[in-house]
Design a protein around this nucleic acid. Sequence first.
DNA 1: GAATTAATTAAACGATCAGTTAATATAGGT
DNA 2: ACCTATATTAACTGATCGTTTAATTAATTC
Lengths: 205, 205
Amino acid sequence: MSKQRTVGRPSGRPPDQVRERLMQAARALFARNEFTAVSVKRIAREAGVNGAMIHYYFGDKRGLYLAIAEEVLGPLLEHLSTRAEPEDFIRGYTEALMANPWWPGFLLREVVFGADDFRAEFAARFGERVRSGLLAPIARRIEQGEMRAELDPRLTLLSLIGLVVFPFLARPLASRVLGIELDELGAAALARHTQNLFRHGVSDE
Amino acid sequence: MSKQRTVGRPSGRPPDQVRERLMQAARALFARNEFTAVSVKRIAREAGVNGAMIHYYFGDKRGLYLAIAEEVLGPLLEHLSTRAEPEDFIRGYTEALMANPWWPGFLLREVVFGADDFRAEFAARFGERVRSGLLAPIARRIEQGEMRAELDPRLTLLSLIGLVVFPFLARPLASRVLGIELDELGAAALARHTQNLFRHGVSDE
DNA sequence: GAATTAATTAAACGATCAGTTAATATAGGT
DNA sequence: ACCTATATTAACTGATCGTTTAATTAATTC
């Protein structure tokens, strides 16, 4: 009976494989659980490595958390980097959220419940892009008479974002209470619904 | 120097005052922090009593949590107990959320991150009321031609709820990024905006 | 091939957690 | 006046938390 030796540097492992496994495990856990509800030992266990590796690669637990937060913020900022008409925003973000269903919950936690300093940084990084990329086109179309004149551009943008994001936040309830399965519905159909409701409302007139 | 005696039943304190203080403190803490991030000792400290009182009055931490959850669910269920046209729902819930700004975050956290059993109970208690109180009127109005025929009633209801709730979820960002202060705006103005957008969309035609 | 650096684990650390127990003091009923 | 139920605190318990340290092995450098 030979006790398996596990301690020490392993042989032939490609670099950064452990780091990647840790991020994968953390991503999955933080998507469904609160920060304080996920222990570093659990992340390490599900990644199949020792808990001390988190501190080796990320300094501490928060460092790992910020690393995967950056994974979310990066692509979202990319999406917003160009001016977009509301219709394009609906389409693009519905697809992005459908492909990364763990984003909205993560963002919600940070933005709604997170520490104030993270919110400040988030607002700073997103603010200008949202205003120039989304708010400006809406304001322009109201001025030009393409949208109803009495609309407040800021409230309209808030409604627009809510229409796009909320279904993914309320996903479990949408499924249980209304029987809506976003996956089966598909990004295209959902985006079409949102575009139509945003453009025409429910009115038949 | 006389050491103050604190142990034992206090004199002349009206009953349930400690219980109420605990619920107040827990309400404030759970509104802004995650369940696991709030310790019983901290709740007790902020309520000015000993931590053991939580177990005396509520059995355990979860019992206290459920007690304040019930405070939210009760009134919300009341609101939904009667059939309501979407316009009335928008008005009523916007006012309720404006008066209790900590509700939506609390509820959403349960829905998005909460344990599955809570979600199931929540869905069971809300499901039928939402379907009969809100979904049925929408479906009827689509059938009768008051709303556009191609609308999916379930998706329309999801959009409706999102329009009402999202501004309160995104409150910090709405303030920072868009400069929208919900308090200054007022429930009436916000409800009017939501009603108009829901009814007519943004279209000028 | 010796020395150094990198990667990994096991074990232990001090802090903090939720929850329990025992002691104690008052209130209220008899 | 006495008893019992109620309310409260201090101190404790065992578990778990994030983090650190020491030991160990492989890879790299010289």
